[in-house]
């Protein structure tokens, strides 16, 4: 079995995995980082979004071995101890979630947007969220949350 090594949330990790193991399986099952969710499992819903070498990606459509040597950040890696990341704080302030299932992916996707396009317009925010689906239809408050985080990040 191949051995895979990567840095997850600043910590070096490695494990033996079959080639077919997805990054999200490695994160959830090997590392027990269950904040990253699997929704559709067909790379559409975005609940599994994590950052790989600074870009947001769908961890259900990436093999763990493809992330060999990568810097991975998951939702667990955003907060600083008990202090929430400004994006998490903004989601809380603006009721940017209802059931919360899509939230880890929404937050990771939103952080990538604000890092790359800090002044994104409301339209650009909505376009960026094309790959993140919220079944509770909380998009209005998600957009508001991201707009708040644009001021605080």
């Amino acid at each position: 079995m191949p051995t895979v090594s990567m840095t997850v949330n600043g910590k070096k990790v490695s494990g033996e995995v079959e080639g077919r193991i997805l990054l999200v399986q490695f994160l959830r099952e090997n590392l027990r980082l269950t904040g990253t969710h699997v929704g559709c499992d067909t790379s559409q819903c975005g609940a599994c979004v994590v950052h790989v070498n600074g870009d947001s990606m769908k961890s259900c459509t990436l093999l763990a071995v493809q992330a060999e040597g990568a810097e991975v950040t998951t939702i667990e890696g955003l907060a600083d101890g008990d202090t929430l990341h400004p994006m998490q704080e903004a989601f809380r302030d603006n009721h940017g979630l209802q059931c919360g299932f899509c939230t880890p992916g929404m937050v990771m996707s939103a952080v990538d947007l604000v890092k790359k396009n800090p002044k994104a317009s409301e339209h650009e925010i909505r376009e960026w969220l094309e790959g993140n689906i919220c079944r509770c239809t909380g998009y209005h408050n998600i957009v508001k949350s991201i707009q708040q985080a644009q001021q605080t990040m």
Binding site: S43, G46, M57, K58, G131
Partner: peptide, 9 residues
Amino acid sequence: IGDPQVRNR
């Protein structure tokens, strides 16, 4: 093409 995460990969 696709969405931002698909375009990143």
